[in-house]
Nucleic acid binder design. Structure first.
Length: 588
DNA sequence: CTTTTCACAGTCGCGCGGATGGGA
DNA sequence: TCCCATCCGCGCGACTGTGAAAAG
C-alpha cells in the first residue's frame, strides 16, 4: 500500500518534461527484470516482479526491479495519466491495506465496488493505495505471501503501447488479451477464492481524437453493475491455484447495466473510460466462506499493463490490427493468410531481411533463441499492404512513451546489436530455462530444442522455430509453417505444474534474478529509447490496415526492419542471463 | 458528429454420431 | 457376434472484427 507521499514520488519520477503523458508503465515494464521467456504459446509468457522471498530487506527490492521507486497513487498527474501505483519494496502501511484495499468478503460489497458508486470512485487510490500497487497486501504472513505471474505479459505490453482497448457489447465481449496468471507462494492446503475486479483507472472520460487518446471531461462515477469476476474454480486449494495457469478467458465485458447482477461472467463497464483489472486472492474456509475480519488474508495484485479503455468500437487501428493478428477468433480478418508465406522469396509480401539495408543489425538468431519470439514479430511479419501511409500524422503511440525514449533514435539499434558473445549467452538462457521448468516442460509445449537460428531465419520469422509460442506472438508464423498450434489463450497449464521442488527452486533463484534485473535497470534508459523509436515507427507502419496491395511499397522495408530490430531487442534487453521469462509481482 | 447497435461472414472448438478395428 | 475404444466428419454454437445503420 502506498502513502500519498509515495504518489508524489512516483509522479516526479515518471512525469514527462514536455507535459505529454509519460510512460508510467511501458518503459519500466520493458525493463522488467527476472523475466524468463518461456517457449510456449503466448499464454505462457509471464512476467513477474519479485520481492525476493529470500531477502528480508524490502528496500533492496526497489533497486532490483523496473518499478522500483514507482510508488504512487493511482493517478497523480493533472492529465490523469499518472495513475499507476507500483511500489515494489515499498513498506506499506498495513492499516491502509486491510481496511480499504483488502476487505474481507463481508466488506466486499462496498470495497470491491468502489468506482461504481457516487463518491467512492477513487478515494482509495491516493489515500490508501487502493491495492493498485502490484503487490500483495500486507498482513499475510511471510509463509503465505503470494507471488503472481502475469502470463502473456509481452502481449499485454504490445497492446499497452498503443493504449489497450477492450470492446464492450450488450451481450458481453471477452477480453483479448485476457487475464491469465500463475500464482505461487500460497499455502498448499489452504483454500482461496481468486477473482478479478475491474476498477476505474483514472477519473477521466476519454475520447480518441487526432489519432490519440485524450481526456474529455470527467468519468461517470455513477456507473452501476458488477465489477467483479470470480474465477469459476473458486474456492480451491492453494495447490490447485498454483498447479496451472489461472485464466480469466471467459470473463466478459459489457455495457449492459441491466444484465449484470445475474451474470457473474460479465463485468459492467462504461465506454470510453479507462479501467484497471486487479487480481484478488482471498483465503477462505474450505466451504469458501471468507474469514470475516481476516483482512490480512486478502492479497491484491495489479499489473498496469492490463489497463485498458472500454470501447464499443475500436478507435485505434493499431489495436485493431493487434487484435486481428493475435486473437485466434479474428483469424478470418487476417490478410494473406495463406499466400504470404507460400510465395517465393521474391514475391513474399513481407520484405526479406536481407533486402533491408539494416538487416545486418537484426539480432542474430541465437539471441532470439528463447526470447524474441515472444515479441513484436508481428511487425516484420505484417504484409506490406498494411503499412501505414501517413494518414495519421500523430502516432498515438508516442503518448505512451517516456520522453527520453525519443532521444536515442537510431543509435539504439546498434546498441542492441547482438554479438556472438551474446549469442553464447542466449544458449545459456536455454539452459537456464530448462533448469527452471525442465526440458519436459518445453517438450510438453511442442517446442523443439532446436538448432534454429541463423540470424536470417530468426530475424525474419523469429517465431517460426517455436510454433506453439508463435501462435500467440507471431501468428504469422502459424501461417508460414501451417503448424497446428495451441491457442494462445489456451488455459492449459504452463508450466504444467508447480511441484514443490520447482517452487522451491524458483524461490532460490530469485536473488540471482534480482541481481540481473538490477543490471538491466541501469541500462533502461537506452532501452526505453529503443522502445520509443520503434513504437513511433510502428505507428507509421501499421496505422492503417487493409490497404490495397498496390499501395504498399518495399521502401518500407527498412522501416520494418528497424521495428523488428528494436522491438525484439526490447524484450531481450532485460534478460542478459536468460532469466526473465517469469516475472512476478509479489507481496512485500 | 460521435457513439452505439446490429447483421454479417469467417474461423474455431466442441459434441455428437457413424465407421472402423481389435479383443473377448 | 458382441462389446469397447478410437478415429473421423459433420453440424452447431461461440467468437471475432467489419461496416452500415441507428441513436443521441
Amino acid at each position: 500500500m502506498m502513502g500519498e507521499g509515495e504518489g508524489n514520488a512516483f509522479t516526479g519520477t515518471k512525469a514527462a518534461p514536455d507535459g505529454r503523458k509519460g510512460s508510467p508503465v511501458l518503459g519500466e515494464d520493458d525493463q522488467s527484470t527476472g523475466r524468463r521467456y518461456h517457449i510456449d504459446e503466448l499464454g505462457s509468457d509471464r512476467y513477474f516482479i519479485s520481492s525476493s522471498q529470500t531477502s528480508s530487506d524490502v528496500a533492496n527490492q526497489c533497486s532490483l526491479f523496473p518499478y522500483a521507486g514507482q510508488t504512487g497513487t493511482m493517478y497523480s498527474g493533472s492529465n490523469g495519466s499518472r495513475y499507476s501505483s507500483l511500489h515494489y519494496g515499498s513498506v506499506l502501511p498495513p492499516a491502509g491495506f486491510s481496511s480499504s484495499v483488502c476487505p474481507s468478503r463481508s466488506q466486499f460489497g462496498s470495497s470491491y465496488q468502489f468506482g461504481q458508486g457516487p463518491g467512492c470512485l477513487y478515494p482509495s487510490y491516493p489515500g490508501t493505495g487502493s491495492g493498485i500497487g502490484s503487490m500483495a497486501l500486507p498482513g499475510s504472513t511471510p509463509g503465505t505471501r503470494a507471488q503472481v505471474y502475469l502470463c502473456n505479459r509481452p502481449l499485454w505490453l504490445k497492446f499497452h503501447r498503443f493504449q489497450t482497448e477492450m470492446i464492450i457489447t450488450k451481450q458481453g465481449r471477452r477480453m483479448f488479451p485476457f487475464l491469465s496468471f500463475n500464482i505461487t507462494g500460497l499455502n498448499l492446503t489452504a483454500h482461496y477464492n481468486v477473482f478479478v475486479e475491474v476498477v476505474l483507472a483514472d477519473p477521466n472520460h476519454w475520447r480518441f481524437q487526432g489519432g490519440k487518446w485524450v481526456t474529455c471531461g470527467k468519468a461517470d462515477n455513477n456507473m452501476q453493475g458488477n465489477k467483479m469476476y470470480v474465477h469459476p474454480e473458486s474456492p480451491n486449494t492453494g495447490a490447485h491455484w498454483m498447479r496451472q495457469e489461472i485464466s480469466f478467458g471467459k470473463l466478459k465485458l459489457t455495457n449492459n447495466k441491466g444484465a449484470n447482477n445475474n451474470n457473474t461472467q460479465m463485468i459492467v463497464l462504461q465506454s470510453l473510460h479507462k479501467y484497471q483489472p486487479r487480481l484478488h486472492i482471498v483465503e477462505v474456509t474450505e466451504e469458501g466462506v471468507e474469514d470475516i475480519g481476516s483482512d490480512a488474508r486478502t492479497q491484491t495484485f495489479t499489473f498496469p499493463e492490463n489497463q485498458f479503455i472500454a470501447v464499443t468500437a475500436y478507435q485505434n487501428t493499431d489495436i485493431t490490427q493487434l487484435k486481428i493478428d493475435h486473437n485466434p477468433f479474428a483469424k478470418g480478418f487476417r490478410d494473406n493468410y495463406d499466400s504470404m508465406y507460400t510465395a517465393p522469396e521474391g514475391d513474399r509480401l513481407t520484405p526479406s531481411p536481407t533486402a533491408s539495408p539494416r538487416s545486418h543489425q537484426i539480432v542474430p538468431g541465437a539471441r532470439y533463441a528463447m526470447q524474441p519470439f515472444f515479441q513484436d514479430q508481428f511487425v516484420n511479419n505484417l504484409p506490406q499492404n498494411r503499412f501505414y501511409t501517413g494518414e495519421r500524422a500523430v502516432p498515438q503511440t508516442n503518448s505512451l512513451l517516456s520522453p527520453q525514449a525519443e532521444d536515442a533514435g537510431a543509435s539504439s539499434a546498434q546498441r542492441w546489436f547482438v554479438t556472438p558473445v551474446q549469442q553464447s549467452g542466449s544458449n545459456k538462457l536455454d539452459l537456464s530455462y530448462d533448469q527452471d521448468y525442465s526440458a519436459s516442460s518445453l517438450l510438453s509445449y511442442g517446442i523443439k530444442p532446436l538448432p534454429l537460428q541463423t540470424s536470417h531465419a530468426l530475424s525474419y520469422y523469429p517465431d517460426s522455430a517455436f510454433a506453439s509460442m508463435a501462435a500467440g506472438w507471431g501468428t504469422r508464423s502459424t501461417y508460414q509453417r501451417k503448424m497446428t498450434t495451441g491457442l494462445p489463450w489456451s488455459p492449459r497449464p504452463s508450466p504444467p505444474a508447480f511441484t514443490d521442488d520447482q517452487l522451491a527452486a524458483s524461490k532460490d533463484k530469485l536473488p540471482e534474478e534480482s541481481t540481473a534485473a538490477s543490471t538491466w535497470v541501469e541500462t533502461s534508459h537506452s532501452l526505453k529509447s529503443v522502445d520509443s523509436t520503434d513504437s513511433g515507427v510502428y505507428s507509421m507502419v501499421c496505422k492503417r490496415r487493409r490497404m490495397s496491395p498496390g499501395g504498399s511499397s518495399t521502401e518500407n522495408s527498412p522501416t520494418i526492419k528497424c521495428e523488428n530490430l528494436t522491438t525484439t531487442e526490447e524484450y531481450n534487453k532485460d534478460n542478459p542471463k536468460g532469466m526473465g521469462y517469469y516475472a512476478f509481482y509479489t507481496s512485500p
